[in-house]
């Protein structure tokens, strides 16, 4: 079947099957043991087989599901942007410190994505990052990451 005619259940079923195969492959490093004494690899293999069978079932039944090309993904681009921004922030968290990271992230969301006025953006970004740091970091004494300058 060519890609445009792929149905979404067929795709997701096949992806689950692929996941099951991947797990089964990774699992080869762990000893299986026996039914009386299951080893480290026993249960994952069982589950992977189960998942693979179900995935196949879904894919086969999927001939009657919605065609892939008709799936609605209007928000996917923005969703990806949000996710990537969070990922960058997570990476920066322990390199730039909590306050700077959160401030930048909020500036990105409010300023770049939501196009709010600079004053609103600045006050929310600065206020949120400092207040949350104070409550969680100082009052509750959770060691939030600090940047290279200790800030």
């Amino acid at each position: 079947m060519s890609l445009p005619r792929l149905r979404n259940d067929q795709l997701s079923g096949l992806m689950l099957l692929a996941l099951a195969l991947f797990v089964g492959w990774q699992n080869r490093a762990y000893p299986l043991g026996s039914v009386q004494e299951p080893g480290a690899g026993y249960t994952p293999l069982l589950i992977a087989v189960f998942l693979g069978v179900i995935g196949l079932l879904i894919a086969l039944k999927g001939a009657s599901s919605e065609p892939l090309s008709e799936m609605q993904w209007p928000e996917a681009k923005r969703a990806a942007m949000i996710l990537v921004a969070c990922a960058v922030a997570t990476y920066a968290l322990e390199h730039l410190g909590y306050r700077i990271t959160v401030m930048s992230l909020l500036v990105f969301f409010l300023g770049v994505m939501e196009h709010k006025k600079p004053l609103a953006v600045a006050s929310v970004a600065i206020g949120f990052s400092l207040l949350s740091f104070y409550f969680i970091g100082t009052l509750l004494r959770v060691p939030l990451p600090r940047g290279p300058l200790g800030w």
Partner: peptide, 10 residues
């Protein structure tokens, strides 16, 4: 939602 995202990360 930006606030919620930051809270989730925190």
């Amino acid at each position: 939602y930006p606030g919620i995202l930051c809270f989730c990360i925190l």
